[in-house]
Amino acid sequence: MTHRIGQTLSSLALGLALATTVLAPAAWAAGASDTDQERAARWQEIAKSIFGDRQIAQTDSLVKIDAPVRALDAALVPITLTMPNDGQIKAVSLIIDDNPAPYAARFEFGPAADPAELKLRVRVNNYTDMHAVVETQDGKLYEAKQFVKASGGCSAPMGMSDEEAMKGMGDMRMKFAETGAGKPVEATLMVRHPNFSGMQMNQVTRDYTPARYIDKLTVSAGDQKVFTLTGDISISSNPVINFAFKPDGKPIQVAASDNQGGHWQHSFTPPSPTN
């Protein structure tokens, strides 16, 4: 199991083109009883492995994380990232400090994005701090934090066989909320994919199902990028992402790939703006 976690960590590091420092086991073996100082020290270590020596300032306004304080389902913890300053945000990263692979997701926004609100669902393996780090257009970093109580989300077995979990893999749906003319459109993207964490037991072989997760997902409105998501094993199975974009009447394109070479593309037609 430790072996698998090691693999997962390095694949994360490669996938996100980070410094390939593999965190010491102590970094995720921590439990519910950690002190604030221990948590802060761990965050320092993780932040350094992801952002190097760049300064990260605290923020109350540029990004806010909303997550349930106590998760109802550790394998599906709904997260909302609020970034009210339109035009200032270049990218946002979500880090779940005590997960085996802490770097859960990174969204890089394009010109068609409206990053005011972003929702996704994640796995949480332990009582943990969760950090959102935004990068502004001027290249500065700002962080916000929330503590979440959950456990076992990454190793939680799915209630079905691997084959069933993989049924329809790559299918997608998109729902659009009604909106006024000239306003950003809110959309919900649903992707069928088990996002195997590599820590779940196969029900038949009783061995661990290898990690298989969406590692790259790009959403575009016509030729303009909305966002590119770099993902990892912390994203829940059958990923659902809520986001907003600036419509220009062209179809929304979604291209997704996973770490085992799977690749899927879909196109969706947003409702025409009503006057």
Binding site: G152, S155, A156, P157, M158, G159, S161, Q200, M201, N202, Q203, V204, R206
Partner: peptide, 14 residues
């Protein structure tokens, strides 16, 4: 059997 294979040890540890 397969459900216990997947979850049995997980439950047991808890």
């Amino acid at each position: 059997t397969e459900a216990l294979s997947a979850r049995g040890e997980f439950y047991r540890k808890r």
